[in-house]
Design a protein around this nucleic acid. Structure first.
Lengths: 204, 204
DNA sequence: GCCAAAGCTGCAACACGTTCTACCTTTCGG
DNA sequence: CCGAAAGGTAGAACGTGTTGCAGCTTTGGC
């Protein structure tokens, strides 16, 4: 009796653990394939095989390719947020801090261009199955910008709501343009920096 | 000799006329199918059939579905520009005129939601074949905004280059979000209006 | 005139996202 | 303990974008 045989029935149970592990493997497989060859290289049969899961199971968890990729992006955005909490953006003014965050984020994304392209492609697909995951990504991105605007003190962020929304749009659009080859990396950064200064300089 | 038999060899020739007519029919067919059922309803076999053209011919002119749809969008953007030249935007300040233009454009787009969805979907696809047509659309949109900023007089637009780029990004991103169901029509207009005022009020 | 190139046609074929079927195993409320 | 529900597997099958092919006609330079 020293090693409680069935501890409390509140532990997940082996089946649930297996299921969670499968989901994790699926996201990992998708990310790896995306990093290697971009959107087209993420083929559902390959993802399933790489995660050692049946194709039907993949579709049970992620009901479309775009949903899968957006979920992977959401996970990555969360991790970016976590890293930013550890090393907060530097800069005296809101505009400087926002610029710093966006620049860092872009550098990280440019380091894995294929993966970024795949995930941004999925993010800008109109697939309604992916809507929930897209909301999550949007929310995370806006939180990241909001945290940069108020340098971890402050209160009245609500005043910046419009700025926040506009900056979010510019971020997504520049990313999308970069992925589509319409904008180079430096141009993307330049547009983002310009937007941050236009929207934030001379305000609060 | 009164009716010059072969006028000057500078006239297009019957073959070229036929070819041009085929291209026009293809764009029309694509637009109609898009208006009826959106992106998925634009099926290449159906477009070819509706335009009374072989599938291979469709691909000779437009090397992908996305390129075809972006070309249709480019044509529509040109027409919007023409209509705007006839009825210039109203408003005393640049921000007011830009808001007026964007509001009008959005209303036009919301009137054909399926067609808009199809074309915006194609526009935000990363298809490199469509890059040239995408550039054309981007350029037209920026010209439209630029014309609204300077009320058909003025000179130094270059000073507004950053504003122009940022507004273009916001326009595309809100459209994309609207198509993806992440933003309602009024929300889209609100974000655009907010951006115009944030970027233009208190400047020149 | 003649011939290569360009442009078309009709149709077969392929690839990959997605769906469906048939069947098995584990979990859990009664 | 039982039976239904949930979650899995293997694999066939379907739809649609895209490509390839064989042959036809028109065009334009020589």
């Amino acid at each position: 009796m020293t090693t409680t045989p069935t501890p409390a029935a509140r532990v997940p149970g082996p089946r649930a653990i297996e299921t969670a592990a499968r989901r994790r493997r699926l996201l990992e497989a998708a990310s790896e394939l995306a990093a290697e060859g971009g959107y087209d290289a993420v083929q559902m049969r390959d993802v399933a095989a790489k995660a050692e899961v049946a194709l039907g199971t993949l579709y049970r968890h992620y009901s479309s390719k775009d949903q899968l990729l957006v979920a992977a992006l959401a996970a990555q955005a969360s991790e970016l947020q976590r890293r930013l909490a550890l090393r907060p953006p530097r800069g005296a003014t809101p505009a400087d801090r926002v610029t710093d965050v966006l620049r860092r984020a872009c550098r990280a994304l440019e380091r894995e261009p294929h993966a970024t392209a795949a995930m941004v492609t999925a993010l800008s697909s109109p697939d309604p199955d992916a809507a929930a995951a897209k909301f999550e990504v949007y929310a995370t991105l806006r939180t990241i910008i909001a945290d940069a605007i108020d340098g971890h003190d402050t209160g009245d962020i609500s005043e910046f709501d419009g700025v926040l929304r506009v900056l979010g749009h510019v971020w997504l659009s520049t990313l999308s343009a970069w992925v589509g080859g319409m904008l180079s990396g430096p141009e993307m950064t330049a547009d983002l920096t310009a937007a941050a200064h236009l929207l934030l300089d001379g305000r609060a």
